[in-house]
Design a protein around this nucleic acid. Structure first.
Lengths: 263, 263
DNA sequence: CGACGTGTTGATCTCTCTCAATTAGAGTGG
DNA sequence: CCACTCTAATTGAGAGAGATCAACACGTCG
């Protein structure tokens, strides 16, 4: 089940501490400029709610569609995606999850999960009991507010996808996805020097996220690549002409402000 | 600007009190079984944050894309929709808003609105200052939690749309939209006896929501109607064969649990 | 070595779009 | 009451973006 995708070590783990033993105060995500700062009390709150850490391999399903007892996760490292399927197998990828993202807020308390979650790479996660959401709200309005904010941000990502799938041509959809995902991934990279980011998606994933067939996705990607807009090599994505891609996708502004996750 | 759509009075307003003067304790939405119950303190909190009430006509734009000072609203009565447009005019409707829905949670504090909001019917709204969101969290964890919940629910509606637009055929998309919107509208109707619900959408709206052309939307609707699946007459939608529509759309279960908005 | 997953390419096919007209109902003004 | 205008719904014809079907290439792995 291992692939030739390079290990996802944009963020290096401290040598001595395996994730499962690491306290939130040492969380490797926290130093990144992207993340909001928390008071020691808030960190301790999160720490006290956290059940355990967890590692999973690539291509494993964390949450199954319809599962009704799924806990809450925080994605510490790696990529995953949310999806829904129709009974004949057609699959729609709803959004991609990167370091710092919440998993499972959507399913309301004791309800069945309306979508599945599968890993794209090996990942490490923090696990919280279902009622941690409520505890966060109860014990720290600040963090509760952040959760709302984060949830709203998640929705705006889906809004963007819906705009793409509903209105953009295949070429525009791909251009848009490349730019947006590149920015999200790049924002998490400590090493700003690199022009490329880890790219664990197969064309099938892209196709399923953009509502295109595999074949058409492939042909369109080749066209973009031939025009020198981007390049994918050794599991990394390089944008060779962001301007052109953004123009093609009609991406005004900077797409999205980075997500400012919790943790 | 008036249309032949019947007045949106599924919920009758108390004769004496115009919405602008009505205290939250008298809110006509509260008695509906759909809505969560609140303590008197919570109601007072909301009441204290509420700035004013507002009526708008059909087809007015509440929030413009890119607007950066939009307040928060609660939709008391009527329909509206959220949308995004591309620079050449292509428009994607992201979701429809019905009584009880929040408007404007998505744009994060002092940021530009990532989407516009336009009314479909005449509406009445409650207006809150932007920081009411924070105040709710600060002063009532319970309501703060409800806001998170509501936001997550909103997202799951968009998830559903994305599944439709990305994977379903035109026929399936229409069937799905008809069933889902019918249920949302029916849940708000006090008069359960009626088999029809108010239907203020033009085919253009449907087309923009489902990523279809107007023509194709029309032709497909006609086909469904001819097969006896549904009927639209005098601004009302009647589902003549919900089972068949749900099967066509591959809608397992009941679509969504009703939204349980605040107020 | 063969099986498998992923990427690539070519040849159809068709669902949906675009373009073009026509119809029907509501509102307006004379 | 009727001509005129506007919006929304309809219907037909032709065109095309993207789907489906079919091979093949390449690297990894058992």
């Amino acid at each position: 089940m291992t692939t030739n995708i390079p290990a996802l070590s944009e963020l290096e783990w401290p040598d001595k501490a395996p994730p499962s033993a690491m306290p939130c105060t040492e969380c490797p995500l926290r130093p990144l400029p992207l993340f909001v700062k928390h008071t020691p009390e808030e960190l301790e709150l999160v720490q006290s709610l956290k059940r355990r850490s967890l590692r999973m391999e690539a291509n494993e399903t964390l949450i199954h569609e319809g599962q009704d007892d799924a806990p809450l996760y925080t994605l510490l490292q790696g990529w995953a995606f949310r999806f829904k399927t129709l009974s004949d197998g057609r699959r729609q990828i709803l959004s991609f999850l990167l370091s710092g993202d919440f998993i499972g807020v959507q399913q309301k308390m004791g309800d069945a999960a309306a979508h599945g979650v599968t890993t794209l790479t090996s990942v490490s996660l923090c696990v919280f009991p279902r009622d941690a959401l409520w505890e966060i709200h109860r014990r720290s309005p600040t963090m509760g507010f952040n959760v709302t904010w984060l949830t709203a941000h998640e929705e705006s990502l889906v809004d963007d996808s819906l705009l793409s799938v509903g209105q953009r041509t295949a070429e525009e959809r791909l251009a848009s996805a490349l730019v947006l995902l590149f920015k999200r991934a790049a924002a998490l990279q400590s090493d700003l020097g690199k022009s490329g980011v880890v790219w664990p998606l197969t064309q099938q994933h892209l196709a399923d996220a953009l509502g295109l067939s595999l074949t058409h996705t492939n042909k369109t990607m080749r066209k973009l690549e031939k025009r020198g807009f981007h390049e994918i090599k050794d599991g990394r994505l390089y944008l060779r002409n962001v301007k052109a891609l953004a123009r093609l996708a009609d991406l005004y502004g900077d797409g999205h402000p980075p997500s400012r996750p919790l943790v």
